[in-house]
């Protein structure tokens, strides 16, 4: 029972973004995928639900090879692995409640009233019940993120992927998102993979860290290993220093 990356390569044309990624996540773990902007963190996690296919290598979810299955079979994996997108990706044309109801209505054979009840319970869980009738354009980024999390939880996923969940949020909203992540790892025993470069989030929430650097997982391990690491690249990233050996693409 885990998500496993085995020697994953991914090229975009002549640009080699990933050149041999290896990592794994178990249920209940909170793995933070960290690294500088544009290094391929989001690219990495999009492989898990088949939004991108590896150029070579293996990606498997609970023993099923995601890189091998057809688009149709992918939909069963996507029910098991939910994703919270960077800009939330709520559907503009639907109200917040309808956004959460949509996947339930599509996948679970429930009566309308039960679908609604389940969606309301989820919105309540993220503290958005009183805004259920509003539309995504009428609320702020932090609230949108919370609804996106509720929607991601609608099918009781075994794993949840977060693409930069705290980027662009104010510190208070960001910490609320962090505690929601911790809550669903402990209460639902979900495996969480979080792409982030928010140091506060990383140190308060992570149980495990994987650092992407130059196309590979530079280092993967429990948070203590990173605290005690003497590697200059890791030290530079964790201290947020501008001087050091680290190469930042685009700068």
């Amino acid at each position: 029972m885990s998500i496993i990356f085995k020697d994953v390569h991914r090229y975009f044309g002549s640009k080699k973004v990933l050149t041999g990624v290896n990592m794994s996540v178990q249920p209940g773990e909170k793995l933070f995928v960290i690294g500088t902007s544009g290094v391929g963190k989001s690219v990495t996690i999009k492989h898990i639900i088949g939004l991108l296919k590896p150029t070579s290598g293996e990606v498997s979810v609970d023993g099923v090879r995601v890189d091998k299955v057809s688009e149709k079979e992918l939909f069963t994996i996507r029910r098991k692995v939910a994703m919270v997108f960077q800009a939330s990706a709520l559907f503009d044309s639907l109200s917040l409640l309808e956004n959460v109801m949509l996947p339930i209505r599509k996948h679970l054979k429930l009566k309308d009233a039960e679908v609604r009840k389940k969606a309301m319970a989820l919105l309540d869980e993220v503290g958005m019940l009183k805004h259920a009738g509003l539309y995504p354009s009428e609320i702020g980024d932090g609230m949108r993120k919370r609804v996106a999390i509720a929607r991601a939880l609608s099918l009781d996923p075994a794993y949840v992927l977060f693409d930069e969940p705290t980027t662009g949020l104010d510190p208070v909203s960001a910490r609320r998102v962090d505690s929601l992540i911790s809550q669903l790892a402990t209460e639902r025993n979900a495996g969480c993979i979080i792409v982030s470069h928010d140091l506060v989030s990383i140190f308060s929430t992570a149980t495990k860290i994987a650092m992407v650097y130059k196309g590979i997982i530079y280092k993967e391990g429990p948070i203590e290993d990173f605290h005690s690491s003497t590697d200059p690249v890791i030290r530079q990233f964790l201290s947020g220093s501008s001087s050091g050996p680290m190469e930042t693409p685009g700068f």
């Binding site: 999009k46 639900i49 088949g50 939004l51 992918l74 939909f75 069963t76 996507r78 029910r79 692995v81 939910a82 994703m83 997108f85 960077q86 800009a87 990706a89 709520l90 559907f91 503009d92 949509l102 996947p103 599509k106 996948h107 929607r151 609608s154 099918l155």
Partner: peptide, 14 residues
């Protein structure tokens, strides 16, 4: 561009 299409796919909706 706002990843809503990926969002649909991620929810297992074609």
């Amino acid at each position: 561009v706002t990843e809503q299409i990926d969002g649909l796919k991620a929810l297992g909706i074609d």
